[in-house]
């Protein structure tokens, strides 16, 4: 089985795809930071930010709705924020008596809730665009050149490379379990919980050992090609004038969004 579905990169060619990955990382982080700084209820600024997102979607040749369609990922977390509606800081709007607890939604709470949601929704879309237009290895290179510790970027590179190999191995284990998980009519299927977790735990242990032994072989393969404990990579990216221009322009846009948010 192939789990290439893991790769969120979209093979399109566009202006955004060709940008230096460092620029994209910096702009994405700046955009998310900007959303976090915007005050609650600055709907105009949120709307401006969203317009910016639409422009990026369009420039990436992904279609205007691309990032929107994939932003559902934050939905499960909304549950957590719902409680903000009942913030005690604002004016009560209603009073719901549920018997064991009385819930009082407030105007402040509602604004807070929707602001949190909007911020999250805008931020996740930018992150979606980042990985859709940047190959993951290029992202790793970008982090390397943005001075992240080498050990960490190397671990991430290995993680990315073997994510696919090991996940396939895990899936094979799962399928082997599936294939032997027969059920007889009238019998309760699947055994006791303890037994089931023991099986799962053994699978995890099995996976661990296979991974451990694999890391030995990989280490040998690295040694065979001259590894001495210090990893070297080339920098395949050079900042062009267009890259600088985009960086400056984007930061101006973000400043403008802040301006819209704070000046009323």
């Amino acid at each position: 089985m192939h789990i290439n579905a893991f790769d969120r990169f979209h093979f399109h060619d566009s202006f955004i795809h060709r940008l230096d990955p460092r620029i994209k990382v910096v702009v994405t982080v700046a955009f998310i930071l900007s959303n976090a700084i915007l005050p609650d209820g600055s709907w105009l600024a949120f709307a401006t930010a969203w317009l910016g997102l639409l422009v990026v979607n369009d420039l990436s040749n992904l279609g205007l709705g691309y990032s929107f369609k994939r932003s559902y990922i934050i939905l499960p977390f909304i549950l957590v924020a719902i409680t903000a509606i009942f913030s005690p800081l604002g004016n009560p709007l209603a009073e719901w008596d549920l018997g064991f607890v009385t819930l009082i939604p407030t105007d402040f709470g509602l604004v807070r809730f929707f602001s949190v949601l909007t911020r999250s929704w805008l931020s996740v879309q930018m992150a979606i665009l980042l990985v859709a237009t940047t190959q993951f290895p290029d992202l790793i290179h970008a982090f390397e050149h943005l001075r992240l510790p080498r050990v960490l970027t190397t671990i991430i590179a290995f993680l990315y490379r073997y994510l696919f190999v090991l996940t396939n191995e895990a899936l094979r284990l799962l399928r082997a379990r599936e294939a032997r998980s027969a059920g007889l009519p009238g019998q309760k299927r699947g055994g006791k919980l303890i037994w089931r977790t023991k099986v799962t735990g053994s699978m995890a242990g099995q996976l661990f050992l296979r991974s451990y032994e694999r890391s030995d072989r990989i280490y040998n393969a690295m040694l065979a090609r001259g590894y001495t404990g210090h990893l070297r990579t080339l920098n395949p990216h050079k900042m062009t004038r267009a890259d600088w221009l985009v960086l400056i322009l984007s930061l101006f846009v973000i400043l403008f969004i802040q301006f819209v948010g704070w000046v009323r």
Partner: peptide, 24 residues
């Protein structure tokens, strides 16, 4: 090595082929 998944440990083909020469 026998298993190319052990031999190819970098994310991209270029990085992997360049590994030896770089470490030389």
């Amino acid at each position: 090595f026998q298993n190319p998944d052990d031999q190819l440990f970098s994310p991209t083909v270029f990085d992997d082929v360049a590994f030896g020469p770089l470490h030389m």
